[in-house]
Design a binder for these strands. Structure first.
Length: 547
DNA sequence: ATCAGCGCGTTAATGTCAGT
DNA sequence: ACTGACATTAACGCGCTGAT
């Protein structure tokens, strides 16, 4: 499956499950298959990223509802079984246990089909097909020449013939369905042993079903031929990659955004590697290099993906949960990116466009209008992250001596470094009436509506209202014609401010403190500027002019 | 038509460590 | 103490989809 197919399927899988009627009156519903089991689901039931439900318009409503319920329950059961199977470590089988398991399969297979309304001939023809079309074509030449010599067809037990007929046997005998339903996960070798054990009994199963179809319920001799299980030391339960990640998150408590971002990485890894403890370098390397595609650059794989895996596995080693860190050595070649734009700051024209458009917005109407009116101007005069500004509250404006300051603090929301800082307010903002605007908010949030949060009370959304405002502000800036993809609509103010500060020779210590950058050297950390120093430095920062 | 909410690629920024 | 390279962490931004 290529990336595009996957993406398209993925989108479909987000569909809700609800019984609807089409315009012609037919009933339809679609059920997305959860990501974690999707590969298994596709392997078992075909490329089923979503399941479709369809009923003719003639079906009465109450029946449609009942059948929809059954359909849904069936899918849920499959998903639950797949999840249970995923949790199990693949088990090896001894030869004897493979036959013991084949005994369980035999009973399961009979039970599954004995109620089928079939003629005896149906089962007989299945048995004949098995013998003559599946097995017999693999007969060695000597047998073809003298068929009477080998009435027991011993050649069908040779490795070559077994390998050749195994897929057909697995399909006819529904071994995959059986293993899933019983919640058994086998290693590749064990699965071969098991299917081979089934192969020797499939004909008997068809025969038994043929007899039942005739009404012959005589005791089944075949059942007695299966051995009992022999005791084998069980393997320790496996540690999944996802489980390792979750254990790491619980212990390390990373920021929510990191957890969210890395979840995607570990979901993918979990689907690919059955056991976290047993990943070797070659497999890790091959998988990681395969991650690079049109949608996902080598850069992302090298930074985000590799970093995430390496970090968590390194923690796993320290905790003695895994033995090796296969991702530590993996190297991803990242081609140099072509950058057309010489700076990530806004050009004069771009800055003018945004600031002029901001002035046309009315700060008494909606919260979005307020954000458009003020946030670009504040960012232009402070280099703050847009998120830090959209989460501002009235109480964050401070008046000290003759100067005004904004307090950017984690108590308002997200601050990247989780450290509060105080930035001076440029006189041009005051001249534009910013103080009056803040007064109107009476201490509360300036740019988002607090009442709208928590509407869906059960779970807090990943993004805060302030972040939503920032996002919409970004779209608005894009809509003004600032479309260069190499430029961030909000973040570019940070570059713009720093560049302008350098141009007017503001001491880098001050521009770092205002933007919240770490001091350039350890030595400079000893001379942290005070808020008053910053206010003084800010007086050197010229007004933006729009003409 | 608009928007909340989410997945996930991208990028910024700080932390750490070896070499000097 | 400084530097550069790499590691680690966290925010930004875009596109999409169901709901309203």
């Amino acid at each position: 499956m290529n990336a595009a197919t996957y993406k398209a399927s993925y989108k479909m899988a987000l569909l809700m499950t609800k019984l609807n009627r089409t315009r012609t009156g037919a009933y339809v519903a679609r059920k997305g298959i959860p990501k974690d089991v999707r590969p298994d689901y596709a392997a078992r039931y075909g490329m089923a990223w979503e399941e479709k439900f369809y009923l003719e318009p003639t079906v009465p409503q109450h029946e449609a509802k009942a059948r929809f319920g059954e359909w849904l329950a069936d899918i849920e059961t499959r998903i639950a079984r797949l999840r249970a199977a995923r949790k199990q470590a693949p088990q090896p089988l001894t030869r004897q246990n493979a036959y013991a398991l084949a005994g369980r399969w035999y009973s399961w297979f009979i039970a599954r089909h004995e109620k089928d309304i079939r003629t005896p001939g149906h089962w007989k023809s299945l048995g004949d097909t098995l013998v003559w079309d599946v097995i017999r074509p693999h007969a060695p030449e000597e047998y073809e020449n003298h068929p009477q010599d080998d009435p027991n067809w011993d050649w069908q037990s040779t490795p070559e013939v077994r390998d050749a007929i195994r897929p057909a046997i697995a399909q006819e005998a529904l071994t995959a369905d059986f293993l899933i339903e019983e919640g058994i996960s086998l290693t590749t070798e064990a699965e071969k042993l098991f299917v081979d054990a089934v192969a020797g009994n499939l004909y008997s199963a068809f025969l038994r079903l043929e007899n039942i179809a005739r009404g012959n319920y005589a005791p089944d001799d075949t059942l007695a031929t299966f051995p009992a299980y022999e005791a084998v030391a069980t393997l320790p339960t496996r540690l999944g990659v996802k489980a390792l990640f979750e254990a790491w998150a619980k212990a390390v408590q990373p920021a929510t955004s990191t957890f969210d971002r890395w979840s995607a990485v570990f979901n993918a890894a979990d689907a690919h590697f059955p056991d976290a403890a047993n990943i070797d370098f070659a497999a890790a390397k091959e998988w990681m290099n395969g991650l690079i595609n049109e949608e996902r650059s080598a850069h992302t794989v090298a930074t985000v993906w590799r970093t995430a895996l390496k970090t968590v596995f390194a923690w796993g080693i320290a905790e003695k949960l895994v033995k090796i860190n296969p991702f530590r050595e993996v190297r991803i070649n990242v081609p140099r990116r072509i950058v057309e734009r010489e700076t990530k700051a806004f050009s004069r024209e771009e800055a003018k466009t945004i600031l002029a458009a901001a002035l046309t917005c009315d700060d008494t109407k909606s919260f979005d209008e307020r954000a458009r009116r003020w946030v670009p101007w504040i960012c232009a005069y402070s280099g703050a992250r847009a998120g830090e500004i959209t989460q501002l509250r009235g109480i964050d404006l401070q008046h000290r001596g003759s100067d005004y300051f904004l307090r950017l603090t984690p108590s308002a929301g997200k601050i990247k470094t989780r450290k509060a800082r105080t930035i001076p307010l440029h006189e041009h903002l005051i001249a534009q009436g910013f103080l009056r605007f803040v007064e109107g908010a009476s201490g509360g949030p300036l740019f988002y509506n607090v009442g709208r949060a928590g509407k869906s009370a059960e779970k807090a959304p990943r993004q805060s209202q302030a972040e939503r405002t920032r996002s919409r502000l970004g779209s608005w800036v894009r809509s003004l014609g600032i479309t260069d993809p190499e430029l961030s609509p909000n973040h570019a103010w940070r570059h713009t401010f720093k560049a302008q500060a350098a141009r007017v020779k503001m001491d880098e210590r001050y521009s770092d403190a205002i933007t919240g950058h770490a001091p350039a050297t350890i030595g400079r950390a000893y001379t942290t500027p005070t808020a008053e120093d910053l206010a003084e430095a800010m007086k050197k920062f010229p007004r933006y002019t729009l003409d």
